[in-house]
């Protein structure tokens, strides 16, 4: 199968307020396969949000290209098809809800692409059910919790018919309960509906749940791999302003002190097993 998202030499250069040329992205090569759950991590300003906006043709490459479902984002005719297939959820739950009633907001996307009324109702209902928000369909968004608002935003992309959802730090402004809600919702959609998920975050605990983790630094991919591979690189993560899980740090320290501990330990249980089997 063709990758859902593919970038070739993706470079993004912009001019900042002080008239300096800034290279936000410098030659990104990546592929995201159908059904994958990919986490992108990186410090503030590492370019991960800029990258996300290229996946939805909200930004266009200065050099190189981005193909979404095989469609080049530089071709203007592809624009709406791309945005329909790849939904986006942004950081601030308050700033992406358009309508003053939950179901009206979920309907906003499909209304824009001209879905007939009967099908629309069905889509909205299905989408709200998928994120477990059906009972709130007639509520006013400003009275919902942060996690609930973000789930409404996710439903909005589902109603649009997206089979790939790009989430740009969806949990940065949420409390721990809201964070769990969003991560669980996305894992469920990924497993049950085979939605491809690109999940940008700076919570390492969330990234640990992904199939693959891409680490960004200064507009480039620093390294990538399975959570086990990525989070074992304790000192490299730290120099990038990121943090490895405690178990990985322990494994790293114990190895330094001469303990024979296998690679790829990132959870408490794995560490406990490794230590008890000696």
């Amino acid at each position: 199968m063709d990758p859902v998202i593919e970038t070739k030499g993706l470079t993004h250069v912009y001019i900042d307020a002080d008239n300096n040329q800034v290279t936000a992205l410098g030659g990104i090569e990546m592929q995201i396969e159908p059904g994958e759950f990919v986490a992108i991590i990186g410090a503030n300003g590492s370019g991960k949000s800029t990258l996300a906006r290229h996946f939805n043709a909200l930004l266009l490459p200065t050099e190189g290209n981005v193909r979404v479902h095989g469609l080049d984002t530089l071709e203007e005719d592809n624009l709406w098809k791309i945005r329909q297939n790849t939904g986006m959820v942004f950081q601030n739950p308050d700033n992406q809800i358009v309508a003053a009633v939950v179901e009206e907001d979920v309907a906003f996307g499909p209304e824009n692409i001209g879905v007939p009324a009967e099908e629309l109702k069905q889509r909205v209902e299905d989408a709200l059910r998928a994120v477990d928000m059906l009972e709130y369909r007639e509520h006013a968004p400003h009275l919902l919790s942060g996690g609930q608002k973000q789930r409404v935003a996710i439903a909005g992309t589902l109603a649009l018919g997206s089979d790939c959802i790009v989430l740009d730090e969806p949990t940065a402004m949420l409390d721990p309960k809201g964070r769990k809600e969003i991560l669980n919702t996305m894992r469920k959609l990924n497993k049950e509906q085979h939605i491809t998920v690109v999940y940008i975050t700076h919570f390492m605990t969330e990234a640990m749940q992904a199939d693959r983790v891409i680490v960004m630094s200064e507009g480039k991919i620093a390294f990538q791999g399975t959570p086990k591979e990525v989070f074992s690189r304790v000192d490299e993560l730290e120099t990038l302003g990121l943090e490895a899980p405690l178990a990985a740090k322990f494994a790293f320290e114990l190895r330094k002190s001469g303990a024979k501990i296998p690679d790829g330990i990132i959870t408490n249980e794995e560490l406990a097993d490794a230590l008890s089997s000696r």
Binding site: L246, A247, F250, E269, L271, A272, L275
Partner: peptide, 14 residues
Amino acid sequence: EVYKLAEALRAKGL
């Protein structure tokens, strides 16, 4: 996390 790790280690007999 440190409390959880300690608990996991204790559970494995450490």
